[in-house]
Nucleic acid binder design. Structure first.
Lengths: 223, 223
DNA sequence: GTCAAAAATCACAGATTTGTGATAAAGTAA
DNA sequence: TTACTTTATCACAAATCTGTGATTTTTGAC
């Protein structure tokens, strides 16, 4: 299910958007301030952000920049003013689109659909936290400036982990997705070895990315 | 360079759009009717279509549907009327966005940028001609119903060919992209071998996809 | 702390991949 | 046609990849 982070301080608008989005089948995390939005971003890892430019504790633009630095999550601006300038500034920051209030809910929903349709099919997700730089599409990875080459399995594993960053991937799920079904709990060991190899290539003492949850599975942390 | 197909019957608007787009670095094919647009589409294979809904010889919607059936080329509608209904109809047909006349050229250019940014980075291109089915993102290929497994190099090669389908890829370009630079004309032979292996997996007497241009390079035909 | 289960690490070998060399086939120009 | 160049094909070996086994380290419950 697609998760949307909604940041809008107008109580009423926030609520009605929430309702409409949920009705459409999205999972919604709603924030009323930049601070809250930041927190929710990190815990929820939304697929798309719906962002009011004017929030009580800061401009939406700043939050947008912050997000875009970390990962290429689509951002759609909600703006009260229909100024060309505003829209252009949004685009400069990498926003995908904008709607001016008041807007038609139907149109907004279509815009979301279009963007998410693209995103879903977009595997060129690039991540960068200053040390590690991952381009899933190109299968290119840089750690601390050095180009790193991954084997096919390592790449598949990395993709699986990063695409589900922040959430625990149980052994059964991971094995299932890595080796087409049937594997199940058979060779948890093979998985461990590949995790090990991946860690060897990506991590260093100061930069850990793959964490193990005892008895459960693995999880990507960071970004 | 990104090619844009512009279909707009208003002489003046067509011309100024042409100018602005070219100035931005796009290559533009301009049409004044649906008929012309259709012809240009087939000869030029544009990356994006800028489409007026009202053309003298037919509705833009129809042309949009026709295009979308063949391939997933992004379409951006130009509409005189700012009616919710119009926009929704466009979206239903798979349009990426729309602008209502009169519009800000700057905004239009940003919208184009956003869409093309997505497209460029979109590797989940699936092709299917009944015999061969390719999902570049998933690295899955089926030929005549049978799942085919490709090695990493084969996959890279296929991707390169298919993403530039219809156009000749010279040896130097292909070698350059397959083996990071420097290779140049050195091992044209290695390329030939990999082409051969790919052909062995994908083709059969009745289904040929990779054609050679004597002394020049290779080219993907089909789709 | 002790202990057992889980995870990490390392070396190894079978399997796969991939460029090279040799040879055959096909294309081009005279 | 003939001579010559380019491309295709096949077999082989070096390099790489990848799961298994053996061993050590870590974890969590008692």
């Amino acid at each position: 299910m697609q998760k949307i982070l909604l940041a809008e301080d107008d109580q009423e608008l926030n609520q009605s958007l929430c309702y409409a989005l949920k009705r459409e089948g999205y999972s919604v995390a709603s924030a009323f301030s930049v601070k809250e939005a930041r927190r929710l971003y990190q815990s929820e890892h939304p697929h798309l952000i719906l962002l009011d430019v004017n929030l009580p504790d800061g401009e939406g633009y700043e939050f947008c920049r912050w997000v875009k630095e970390k990962a290429d999550i689509p951002v759609l601006f909600l703006t009260a003013r229909d100024l060309e300038e505003d829209a252009l500034r949004g685009y400069e920051l990498g926003a995908e689109d904008y709607v001016t209030k008041p807007f038609s809910m139907k149109i907004l929903l279509r815009k979301l659909e279009v963007i998410l349709r693209h995103m879903k099919s977009e595997s060129r997700l690039t991540f960068d936290d200053g040390y590690l730089r991952i381009d899933l599409d190109q299968a290119k990875v840089q750690a601390g400036g050095n180009e790193i080459s991954l084997t096919p399995t390592e790449h598949r594993l990395l993709k699986e982990l990063v695409q589900n960053r922040g959430q625990l991937l149980t052994y059964s799920i991971l094995l299932d997705r890595m080796w087409d079904a049937g594997a199940q709990f058979m060779d948890k060991h093979a998985l461990a070895v590949n995790i090990n190899r991946l860690r060897g290539k990506l991590e260093d003492p100061d930069h850990k990315y793959i964490s193990n949850v005892y008895g459960m599975g693995y999880q990507w942390i960071g970004f």
